[in-house]
Structures are given as C-alpha cells and as structure tokens.
Design a protein around this nucleic acid. Structure first.
Length: 192
DNA sequence: AATCGGATCGTCT
DNA sequence: GACGATCCGATTG
C-alpha cells in the first residue's frame, strides 16, 4: 500500500457546480504552472465568483464575445483576460448546468514551489509581495494569453490540485474593483 | 497607513 | 473614444 500525500487534480465535476460554491472550495487548493522544466505553484488564498446574467460585475453579463467566450465554454478550463493595458488575470470556468457562463477569479496565492522563479519573474525579493494580487500571481507563475482556454483537468501546463486543505475560517466580503453587483458577497479568502 | 496619479492597450460602445 | 475584475512608486499625514 502506498501512503502518499494526495496530489489529485480537481475533476471536471468539481467545476460543474454553483460558481459561488466552487469559489469557496478552491481556497486551500494548489494552482500549478509548468513551463519547460520549471514548476511554479501556490496555495489559493483568495477567490471571487463571477456569474452570468444575474451578475452585472461579470465579464459575461451582457453577451458572449471573443474575449469572454471561455466563460461560456466547458467547465474546468482557464479564462485568462488582459486588463489595464498590461496585466493578465486567471479564472477557472465553473458553473452549474442551469447557468450559461461563470468563472472563479484567482486573486491571491501563498507561494509554494518555484519561489526563486517567482522572484525572478516579479523582480522582487519580498516573498509576501510575490503573489498577493490577481495580476501579480499571473506574472509570478508566467500565465499569459497563451493559457487562454487551457483545460485545467488535462493540461500538462496549468492545473489545480487538491494537495492542501484549509484551516481556519473563510472570510466573506464584497468583490474588489467593481461598481455594480457590490451587494453580492462573493469574495472569499483564508488567512495564511 | 492611506491616498493619488501614471503606465498602457484590448475590448466594447 | 472611454474605460477597466490592477500595480507601483511617490507623497502626505
């Protein structure tokens, strides 16, 4: 019998649930990005849920476009978007079957593997400043437009594993940087 | 500790 | 043609 620490990838079914529920459940999971021989990863410590026509803050609120089409696609894929002229942010597409679109924005990580590579990518030595923001973590892990639509369930480059678990309470608040939908408390975080 | 402006460009109106 | 699901450095209190 092997008594190995589980490093299971999250299954397709994990993502095929209410976007808000998936956002909470992604806390404590590990986001992994492999480029060449480098493996860079971190434990997810903050997420936000964005849904469809019930959510005016969502990129998918109005209709499907070339930019947001991943949010309408199969669950478990990555939705990467470019913003403010210089940054990328990464989401995991997640929705229950009665929704046409939905995704969970990964807002912060606790650095885990490949910290030297993160320091290089981010051009800073301050570990607590490497991945504590949605655009910071994509820079640290090397996530860009090329990861658009990547299948987190099967891709060798980008995926999420179950190897960590959460301890402590989930803090719930309004989402950051939005002007509509502020009444929805769909920002979730855990303390490290 | 909190606030402010600049950087910079793809996307949608 | 305006505006971001942001970050950083500078300035002020």
């Amino acid at each position: 019998m092997k008594s190995k620490v589980s490093k299971m990838r999250l299954s397709r079914e994990f993502y095929a649930r209410n976007t808000v529920k998936v956002a909470k459940d992604l806390l404590g999971k590990t986001l992994v990005c492999k480029i060449g021989k480098k493996t860079i990863s971190g434990v997810i410590t903050e997420t936000e849920a964005y849904r469809h026509s019930d959510d005016p803050a969502s990129h998918a609120f109005r209709s499907m476009t070339e930019r947001n089409k991943a949010m309408f696609g199969e669950v478990g894929h990555a939705y990467v978007y470019f913003t403010y002229g210089m940054y990328y942010c990464v989401n995991a597409v997640a929705k229950s079957k009665n929704f046409q679109a939905g995704a969970v924005l990964i807002r912060s990580l606790e650095p885990k593997d490949g910290i030297d590579a993160m320091r290089y990518n981010r051009k800073t030595d301050n570990i607590s400043n490497l991945t504590n923001g949605p655009a910071k973590l994509t820079i640290a892990l090397g996530i860009t437009k090329t990861h658009y639509g990547e299948d987190l369930v099967n891709s060798p480059h980008l995926y999420i594993t179950d190897e960590d678990s959460i301890n402590g309470k989930i803090r719930v608040s309004a989402r950051i940087g939005i002007k509509q939908g502020t009444e929805k408390l769909w920002n979730f975080k855990i303390k490290v």
